[in-house]
Computed example of a mutant assay.
Amino acid sequence: MLRSEQEQLRKNIEQWVEQYGRDRSALLPVLKKVQHDYGHISEYVMQVIADILDIHPVEVHGVVSFYSFLGQRQKGRYVIRLCRTISCDMQGKDRVARQLRNDLGIEFGEMTPDGHFTLEWANCLGMCDEGPAMLVNDRIYTRVTPERIHDILEECRKSFGVYPTPMKEAEPA
């Protein structure tokens, strides 16, 4: 990461801290904002946040590693989470998972080479009566069938022009 990118990233984090507060209660909202805007939370970012909030970096790392929606690895613009509970399993989750893998050309836990999609499992989406359930970023899809996957992915692809390319992994200062 270039020095100018680091400086801009630090400015952004400082703005978010001002917005959410300068104590531990700001940690999660700031991390969510970084995850949303940059696609991941690097070691460098965790150190910057710890410095600004005056907390130990291990506290920041603990929060990042605890919440599955936060992550140190780069994620695609669209994070697709397929519910893997027994109720979704009984309603055809495996067929939907196979279609996702085929259409995206990746396995669960991977990101497409173009950085547009990440495929993950979710332990429960709370939609057991309407499975299989799938979450694409913040949008829930229920009663998902393999036939619907193409349309859902096309809906995502139509919006690519309005989102910046995912940022490369941050290097320590």
Rank of each mutant, 00 (worst) to 15 (best):
V79N: 08
W16C: 00
G62F: 09
Y44I: 07
R73C: 01
V144I: 10
L28C: 01
D129I: 00
D151H: 04
R101Y: 06
Q6E: 02
T85E: 09
Y67C: 00
H36F: 03
R101C: 15
N123S: 13
N12T: 06
E169K: 12
H40G: 01
L82S: 10
F69K: 00
V58R: 10
L9N: 01
T165V: 06
E169Y: 06
V30Y: 09
Q91T: 13
R3K: 14
N102I: 13
Q74F: 02
G71E: 14
R10T: 12
Q91G: 05
T165Y: 06
R95Y: 12
R157P: 00
L31N: 05
E5I: 07
G76Y: 11
E155I: 00
R101T: 15
V45R: 06
C124M: 10
D94P: 03
R73H: 06
H116K: 13
K32C: 02
P146Y: 09
Y78G: 04
A170R: 01
F117T: 11
L9W: 04
E107V: 12
H61L: 14
G126N: 07
R148Q: 13
L135G: 02
E171Y: 02
N123M: 10
S42W: 10
H61A: 15
E59G: 14
D138Y: 01
K11A: 15
L104Y: 03
Q35I: 01
I80A: 10
D129N: 11
Y44R: 14
Q47S: 14
A173V: 13
L135E: 11
I41S: 07
P172G: 05
R81P: 07
P113W: 01
P172A: 03
G71R: 08
E169R: 08
G115A: 12
C83V: 08
P113R: 10
M111Y: 01
F108R: 11
E18F: 00
A97C: 12
I152N: 03
G161I: 00
R84C: 09
E147T: 07
I41L: 08
C156S: 12
M111G: 04
E154H: 04
F160Q: 10
L9G: 03
V63M: 10
Y78W: 15
L28P: 01
V136R: 06
R81T: 09
E169P: 05
A50K: 12
S42M: 07
H61M: 13
L70T: 00
R95I: 04
W121T: 08
K11Y: 05
P164K: 07
P57F: 11
S4I: 13
D114P: 10
C156L: 09
L2Q: 13
I86D: 07
I140F: 08
S87P: 03
I80S: 11
E18N: 07
Q8N: 05
Y141W: 12
D103P: 03
Y78P: 03
L27E: 09
R98L: 14
L27N: 03
K11W: 03
L153V: 08
L82Q: 11
L119Y: 09
E147N: 11
E155T: 03
Y67S: 01
V45P: 03
D114W: 09
V79W: 08
D89I: 01
N102W: 12
T145Q: 09
L28Q: 02
C88L: 05
S4G: 07
E171I: 08
V17N: 04
P172I: 05
V34P: 00
L153M: 03
R3Y: 10
S87K: 14
I86E: 08
E110Q: 15
R24V: 04
E5P: 00
C156T: 09
Q47N: 14
